[in-house]
Design a protein around this nucleic acid. Structure first.
Lengths: 106, 106
DNA sequence: TCGACAGTTCAATATATCCGAACTATTAAA
DNA sequence: TTTAATAGTTCGGATATATTGAACTGTCGA
């Protein structure tokens, strides 16, 4: 009897642009996306934008990124491994992620 | 003695990416931006995304777009005329507006 | 000068976000 | 095998943000 989360990942065609932009419109989440873009696979805590962020807040951010089709989360032991859904996302919103990441920090 | 608004428009270098994305991450606001991108100059009511939107809500959306450096508002008689700050915005966030507009509807 | 019109501001309510505390699952140690 | 530690989720209350009706400012036309 499994009670722990089986993450749901939307089909990208069901993700509206607004939701995608909203997910990226937060420094913490965008920071996580940037890190994932550079690092392939990260546990939740490793994806965290800083040490001080509470676990529950981090979990919420990741849930939102999942809902926006930006990341995929799978369980591996007691860790949850997150990866960017780059191909899917780029196909749905061509150029968007590249432009946003390029405009970050810069 | 002027009591009515003298609109403040930020320098684009003071606009953080998050704020810009947040401004675009709303169907109503993005619709208005798209309309302004096609139409040059629009009064507030003409820029409205639909008939049914309340005036106060519309006013707030436009204030947010101003704060994000996306539009400039000037008074002309009793109307407020809005225009896209395309050059400024494109210089600050190269490619962003184009990509977002291209991904709208499409 | 009296309305009517275009839009803003205010204040109340609805909605979303944040975060501590309690919980679930998995692994490692005793 | 308990037991404890780790990795994360979920719940609920507090805080912040958005929405909107009502009252207001300022401009124009009759």
């Amino acid at each position: 009897m499994r009670l722990m989360p089986r993450f749901t990942h939307p089909r990208l065609e069901d993700v509206p642009l607004d939701l995608a932009l909203h997910a990226l419109a937060d420094p913490n989440r965008l920071g996580m996306v940037a890190r994932l873009a550079a690092t392939e696979r990260l546990s939740c805590t490793d994806a965290a934008p800083c040490e001080s962020i509470p676990k529950s807040t981090l979990s919420n951010h990741l849930k939102l990124l999942r809902a926006a089709g930006l990341i995929e989360t799978t369980q591996a032991g007691r860790e949850m491994i997150n990866t960017l859904r780059r191909v899917d996302f780029d196909q749905r919103f061509p150029g968007l992620l590249d432009v946003v990441l390029a405009n970050r920090v810069a």
